[in-house]
């Protein structure tokens, strides 16, 4: 019965999502710790509630998908912060290019080595290869190389949340202080979810992170097939 309600009342899924996110924001303000990440808290709360009330994911999603519907126009709009920091990009072009490339190559090399260590199959390897790029690009790469797309999506989202939460620790441990470097690292390795954190850090970080999503995504389209050909 409650499944029917969630399917018919289309705003139930959307309202639940937004309320859970507000709760996440509240906890973050209260405790000021990166672990209280609004996305993570919202996801945990919604899953807990759905499990508790025995609501199917599909019933929840029939309303909540209208929130995700805005993802394409929102991605388009990342061009605005990028445009406003275009001079910063021009001044740091070489650094940005080297940074994005080293982020992608080291990330994929890491996936390759760990797949070898854990003796994963080639299918599992290519499923994980696009884990750092934005969801839509990653799905396409995984499909093309013969991976399991649903797992790729799950791993991409977890990677994004990990970067969003832990990037600050990595930056302070390694004394990464340049705003451009922080933005490039977040966008290259944890796509749009990492960019959400970069936007909070500052305008330069947000702009560079937006740029890195697009550039890293397209470079991965080119480079992932080469990595896929490596003998596992």
């Amino acid at each position: 019965m409650i499944n029917d309600f969630f399917e018919e009342a289309l705003f139930s899924g959307a309202a639940l999502t937004l309320l859970a996110y507000e709760l996440g924001l509240l906890l973050k303000r209260r405790f000021r710790s990166a672990i209280f990440n609004p996305i993570l808290i919202a996801v945990i709360c919604v899953i807990a509630l759905l499990k508790l009330l025995n609501i199917e994911y599909s019933s929840y999603e029939s309303g909540a998908k209208y929130i995700s519907y805005l993802l394409t126009p929102a991605t388009v709009c990342l061009a605005l912060p990028l445009y406003e920091e275009l001079k910063l990009l021009k001044d740091n072009l070489a650094a940005v290019a080297c940074g994005i490339l080293s982020g992608i190559l080291s990330g994929m090399a890491g996936v390759f080595l760990l797949c070898k260590i854990f003796r994963l199959s080639h299918t599992q390897y290519v499923t994980l290869l696009p884990k750092s790029v934005t969801t839509a690009i990653g799905m396409g790469i995984s499909e093309e190389l013969g991976g399991t797309v649903t797992i790729t999506v799950a791993v991409i989202i977890i990677t994004g949340i990990f970067g969003n939460i832990f990037a600050d620790f990595i930056f302070s441990a390694l004394k990464i202080k340049e705003p451009v470097a922080k933005g490039i690292a977040l966008g290259t390795c944890s796509h749009a979810i990492g960019t959400a954190r970069a936007m909070e850090l500052g305008e330069a970080e947000g702009a560079m992170s937006s740029l890195a999503i697009a550039v890293a995504g397209m470079l991965t389209v080119v480079l992932a097939p080469i990595f896929s050909g490596l003998p596992l």
Partner: peptide, 24 residues
């Protein structure tokens, strides 16, 4: 594999991209 792989490779990537950008 995932519990090890996601934190390790993401940390390596963020570290490499950040350090190289800052160095240049």
């Amino acid at each position: 594999a995932l519990i090890v792989m996601i934190p390790v490779t993401t940390t390596i990537g963020i570290a490499a991209a950040g350090l190289v950008t800052q160095f240049v």
